[in-house]
Design a protein around this nucleic acid. Structure first.
Length: 418
RNA sequence: GGUGGGUUGGCAGAGUGGUCGAAUGCGUCGGUUUCGAAAACCGAUAUACCAGCAAUGGUAUCGCAGGUUCAAAUCCUGCACCCACCGCCA
């Protein structure tokens, strides 16, 4: 949510920034300001009546005053009803506005994404490489068919060395974050509707979430949970930045996505992810951003994968974020890069919604914190990338060095056909 | 799932319809005293919004949302959470 006072005082600048991600016909700042004017006018009116009522309520009134207060009471009630309507309308319009993209973020959609940096060496195969589905089946590490049998399409079962590889990746991430002194959280995998609203996933993603009979939704990213972790709290300035990482299985309905183009594990209904999260002071938040990006890059580099970073254009990033840089890993079979981490700074946009503040010691004022998040990392695209990028001519797959101590093996061999 | 008890400021804890934004204690901050400190004493100590250049004034907030009343922390209804007991339980 944006600050109404900022919209009022810096209207042209706000407008210019918002036009990078939404069309002019969807933007009506004047309408919003007019609503706020209306709200203020009504507040002034009603508060005069309330002041009078309070004055007389302090003592025992006589019959005449009681009669007078009765009419004032009715006026207050009417004005209150009006204010409620105006405030709801204002809140709705205000919540619908996306965050202001950061200055260096390019306007428009995907086509304006900007490649920043390429890491590693592009694998060059001297044989005909297989895609990860073929590899996973030959190596007997992923059981797609039984996954679908049990839970329907979009689910799979990690099996044997595949399960070990998956778990090793998670251990590698956890190890890394612990060394950096991030606090480890294992949150619940279900959350309330209110929490989904606060994290900004409602109303937009309602159809992409799984809902239980009890009105809870399944976690789609632990950003949802950590974002709510300090909701309605006033944090201690000296604790900032708070650095967390959380593991969660993530559940997404992926309604209407292009399953045919993204076979295998690239887009499933359930995947494992470790998420990094910072609660920062405003003046620290870009430093936090740089740290999160560096961590994500290091994690992928550590695996020896070929990948790139991309700065997303305004309309391609999540609306809550001022700036997003994606870390994308190369998938030879698709000849394309796929996101394994999304590093984002929401500034105070999410904190305003969740009412997460800190007391500024210098000014004595409560200020909104800045929130940042980055995957660190999601496994479901790394396993395919590892299989495809590290496949050998004999059909085996080499395990990245950093994972070997967690796996207990250096390569996965195809199962022998008797 | 059922019954009962609870939710008040940073914390503990009074307050059952009218000068209650709220006693008291603790904590925190500032001061006096001291070579310095402790103790003691004095004073300050919530947040948000509105008007105003400011000083300041006003409004709201006692878990949340409604209601009753001239007037609600206090009465009524619903909800959330915490505690206790009972029931059920792969």
């Amino acid at each position: 949510m944006l600050d109404i006072n900022k919209i009022r005082s810096e209207k042209e600048a706000v407008k210019k920034a918002l036009l990078k991600r939404i069309a002019a016909q969807d933007l009506d700042l004047d309408g919003i300001i007019a609503l706020d004017d209306e709200r203020r006018k009504l507040l002034q009116e009603v508060e005069i009546f309330k002041a009078e009522r309070n004055k007389y309520s302090k003592t025992k009134p006589n019959a005449e005053i009681i009669a007078k207060m009765k009419t004032i009471g009715e006026k207050i009630k009417k004005l209150n009803d009006k204010i409620r309507v105006v405030e709801n309308d204002l809140k709705e319009k205000l919540s619908a506005l996306p965050n202001l993209p950061s200055e260096e973020v390019k306007p428009g959609g995907k086509e304006n994404n900007q490649m920043l940096k390429i890491f590693g060496k592009k694998p060059n195969f001297k044989f005909k490489p297989k895609d990860h589905i073929e590899l996973a089946t030959a190596l007997d590490v992923i059981d797609y068919q039984r996954g679908a049998k049990i839970s329907g399409s979009g689910f799979w079962v990690y099996r044997g060395n595949g399960a070990i590889l998956e778990w090793a990746l998670l251990n590698y991430f956890i190890d890394f974050h612990r060394k950096n002194d991030y606090t480890f959280l294992l949150p619940p995998f279900m959350l309330t509707e209110q929490s989904a609203f606060t994290s900004g996933h409602l109303p937009k993603f309602r159809d992409d979430l799984y809902w239980t009979k009890d009105g809870l939704c399944l976690n789609a990213t632990s950003e949802m949970m950590i974002g709510n972790y300090h909701r309605d709290e006033i944090l201690d300035e000296s604790d900032l930045p708070l650095k967390y990482f959380a593991y969660s299985a993530c559940f997404r309905r992926e309604a209407g996505s292009y399953r045919k183009e993204e076979r295998g594990m690239v887009r499933g209904h359930q995947f494992n992810k470790i998420e990094m999260f910072h609660f920062s002071k405003p003046e620290q938040s870009w430093q936090s951003f740089a740290e999160l990006l560096k961590n994500a890059e290091k994690l992928v580099s550590g695996l020896g994968l070929y990948f790139q970073t991309v700065q997303l254009a305004a309309a391609d990033a999540s609306v809550a974020m001022a700036k997003t840089i994606d870390v994308e890993v190369w998938l030879p079979s698709m000849a394309t890069y796929k996101e394994v981490s999304s590093v984002s700074n929401a500034l105070d946009y999410q904190a305003r919604r969740g009412n997460i503040r800190f007391k500024n010691k210098k000014t004595g004022k409560n200020e909104f914190v800045h929130t940042l998040n980055a995957s660190g990392l999601a496994t479901s695209r790394l396993v395919p990338a590892i299989l495809e990028q590290f496949q050998q001519k004999d059909g085996s797959v080499k395990i990245p060095k950093v994972l070997q101590k967690f796996c207990g093996f250096k390569k996965i061999e195809p199962k022998k056909i008797a």
